[in-house]
Design a binder for these strands. Structure first.
Lengths: 217, 217
DNA sequence: GATACTATTTTTAGTCC
DNA sequence: TGGACTAAAAATAGTAT
């Protein structure tokens, strides 16, 4: 089905800008993912904060940050000042959020394993597709369900985006924030920060919703 | 000349914070170098701009940037004129954070269960009471990949975390903030408009990172 | 754009200098 | 902290969906 020629496998490449546009795009996606993964691992293994900002060839912005991009950037820009702004949120650590983060982190690891184990059993589950299956007594979800979950999440993401547009409109009609200036980083930061394990990093992507607006969510 | 024990070669490690201080430091140095190298390669191969900021366990700051950190950070923070970061407003009380969190938690539990059962058979479970909070039918589901689910989850995690944080911040600082309500949702937006900056092609090999690429404070 | 595959190329954990 | 070394763990180029 899919065996053309012999030579398969990684090829060595020269370190210079890739000529073929198409190839460049693929490489960019792969390596960007790889870079973010490396960063994530570094965060987890060494418990450090990292921020990465990448401007894609297409003009989009991809960012990665632990605990988030802005806190790191802020800390970078103002080395002397202790992140005061962030304390607004950090003042009262929310156990639920941490719990959520922990769960998601575990989930991600699980999915990795699940993915490896086998997608053979996936077919069997195709038939068991239901509406709102996520509400049902969850005891066992197959890959089919996971796929549905994925779609559902994307839908959610889309909805949030719409809302973001509305919100933005509202903001522009108002003045500004008490202590948030255009070039100052605002509140943000979630997940555990400080020390102790967990890989609550975040990989984000900018999504375009309007003719000239990118919402990051 | 140096053959102490047998076990040589790379060992697999678990993704959690390294316990041994000494080991952690070594790993940090190596991986940081590796991360920067990857970033460098991405710059060269794809001709894109990147900025990386890393706060070491020792409190130092390491950064990598092409063409330099500040330009990328600046571009990230000031996509254009107006636009305020982290605008928080609740235009319409649509998305309820609590519900969202509940759903996510629920989904996570579901997946946890799946993992434990070791992907047994997938019998159908009754629909059960539902409350399509995002009101979006998810019937026509294509053959998705777990990898995508993973990405979606990571994005969602960030989204939920941020919203929850902002919500808390709103509650704590409700006295004085414009239109913030206890159940308001926060959405942040960074723009990347117009500026296309298609990374110049004059990217010279960034071999070893020169003193102008590494900043060690 | 993102993924799947697979043969190779790279990266790197552990340990010693 | 920065190499050196070995061998196993990861990342990934090229190609096709």
């Amino acid at each position: 089905m899919v065996q053309k020629n012999a030579i398969q496998g990684r090829q060595k490449i020269t370190m210079k800008k890739i000529a073929k546009k198409n190839n460049l795009q693929v490489t960019f996606s792969k390596r960007r993912a790889g870079l973010f993964k490396k960063a994530s691992e570094l965060c987890t293994l060494c418990g450090v904060d990292i921020a990465i900002i990448v401007f894609s060839p297409a003009g989009k912005v991809f960012s990665f940050g632990h605990p988030n991009v802005d806190s790191a950037v802020h800390r970078f820009l103002t080395p002397n000042t202790s992140s005061v702004h962030y304390d607004i949120v950090q003042a009262h650590p929310n156990a639920n959020i941490r719990e959520l983060n922990a769960q998601i982190t575990n989930l991600l690891e699980m999915l990795e394993g699940e993915k490896r184990k086998g997608q053979a059993l996936d077919e069997v589950r195709e038939a068991g597709r239901r509406q709102c299956w996520w509400q049902a007594p969850i005891h066992e979800l197959g890959l089919s369900e996971l796929q549905q979950l994925r779609n559902a999440l994307e839908e959610l993401k889309r909805n949030v985006g719409k809302q973001a547009n509305l919100m933005r409109a509202a903001v522009e009609c108002s003045n500004g924030w008490p202590f948030l200036k255009p070039n100052s980083v605002g509140i943000s930061n979630f997940g555990t920060q400080g020390n102790e394990t967990n890989a609550s990093s975040s990989i984000t992507q900018m999504h375009k919703f309007g003719p000239d607006l990118y919402f990051d969510f």
